[in-house]
Computed example of a mutant assay.
Amino acid sequence: MHKSEAVTAIVLATHALARIAAHDAGNDAPSAQWRALSILDQRGGMRLGALASAARTTQPGMTRLIGTLEQAGLVERTADPHDSRATVVTATEAGIRALDDWRTELGATLAPRFDGLSDDDWRAIERTAAILGERVQSTSSDTTGAHE
């Protein structure tokens, strides 16, 4: 397997695992909700357009999603201190709690699928997770947030 194929395989497998976990857990929240909350958790408050771009969705779609999340108390919109015509979306404490609960639920739901792994396999998974986490962080720090 070539390097690019290995990375692609990891990405595809993680997407499939997330879908499996959502299905097995009976969680009907849209994955876009968790993606938006994760981005806000990692990057802090962002303008709607920047959030839509980071989530790889349209601005109208993100506007609808943020409206739903705001009604549920998971995000809040405030005026951008640098541009009164714009708003900044921020995850609320309830939103971060919901995200943490979802992550815990993901882990618990998927855990049985990994019961038989050896210590070497777990070390490989832990190292892969660390490498991917580092790459995500370096990519995230290269993008802008609220002040785009």
Results as ranks from 00 to 15, higher is better:
T68C: 05
P30Q: 12
D121N: 01
R85P: 01
L74N: 04
L37C: 03
S84N: 02
V75A: 11
R127W: 01
G49Q: 03
A25W: 07
A32L: 15
L37V: 04
T57E: 06
T57D: 12
E76C: 08
A79N: 07
G107Q: 14
A111S: 14
T63S: 15
W34K: 05
L69G: 09
V89L: 02
T68P: 02
G44C: 07
T104K: 13
D24C: 00
D101Q: 14
R64S: 09
G26Q: 13
T57A: 09
P112R: 04
G61L: 04
I96H: 02
S138E: 07
R113A: 14
I131W: 00
W122P: 00
V88H: 01
F114K: 02
T109C: 12
Q137F: 06
R103G: 02
A129T: 05
E93W: 03
R77K: 13
E93K: 11
T128E: 08
I96R: 06
E76T: 09
T68A: 11
I96Q: 02
R47V: 05
A86W: 05
T57I: 10
R103V: 09
R97M: 08
T104L: 15
G116K: 10
R64A: 11
A32R: 13
Q33T: 15
S53N: 02
E105P: 00
S53R: 09
I131R: 05
E76S: 11
A25G: 06
A54S: 08
T139Q: 09
